[in-house]
Amino acid sequence: MTATLFDALLALLLVWLGWRTVVSTNLFNAVVLFVIFGLLMVLCWARLGAPDVALAEAAIGAGLTAALLLEAYRDLTGNDPHHVHDVEDSPLRWPLAALCGLLFLGLVATGWQLAPPTELGETVHARVAESGVENPVTAVLLNFRGYDTLLEVAVLMLALLGVWATNGPHATLGSRQTLDPDSALIDAMVRLLVPMAALVCSYLLWAGAHAPGGAFQAGAVLAGAGVLLHLAERLQPLGTASTSSRALVTVGLFVFVAVACYPLVYGGRLLAYPDGQTKALIFLVEAALTVSIAHSLTLMFSGGRAFQRGRR
């Protein structure tokens, strides 16, 4: 009973927050509301029994996206707290609202017609032992549907290339005053949080085989540490990519493609892991993916193409 009440409250709050985010004319309010929306989404995923998605949502949806939106807001207002940026009414808002409404109705209709998902879930659970890992989510992502994940990683790399292309090679980077990097408190926080983020990252990567976790969550946590280092000016983004930066961005995709093609050498099928080496290969792919995801997300946040040690 209490649980049902809690879920109902959560669902209502989500809808209300979504509505407030959309209709808010104050940009800062909209950003804050959107971040709270992300945090409540984390609770929703946890209540739905999907801790993997909850972790990813917490790290990417609520964490990195929030930092990105606030950074964008600051760029818009030019660091002036009295400058309130109001959203102007766009003539496109009604057509857009109608389109979104149609999309929503389409999604509802599709969801309604979908067969109950038990069949697929049961198949995965029945065959998870063959996948080399015990966590069914990792089994699906890296083994049963490895093809999807491979393309996803390629999409992430393409997104970074898009950021690089739009920024131009000589974008002004890191010249703005950011976090008050001289403060003793910032120093203490960086010293404590960054090693802890690295620890959590390795744990999530290792735990992915048998518990919620995996490359995306681990990479996002490490990227959080990278964003902190960038804001505290310990990492200085550069406008030109170095060889090591390119290597870090691409190593995940390279390793994944190499592991995917390896079976072709002895006449196997693409992405079919050889018997007995499945777990080791999945871990290898996930470790490489973690590095690439973390580096790509941090670069996307800073708009840079590589990093060097900052001034502090």
């Binding site: 707290p81 008050d180 403060s183 408190l185 203490a188 404590l192």
Partner: peptide
């Protein structure tokens, strides 16, 4: 840790912007 650092930063920012 996060609470005290962010409190400090918000207060400092407010003070410096003349509040």
């Amino acid at each position: 840790l996060a609470g005290s650092v962010s409190c400090h930063l918000v207060a400092r920012f407010a003070l410096r912007s003349g509040l």
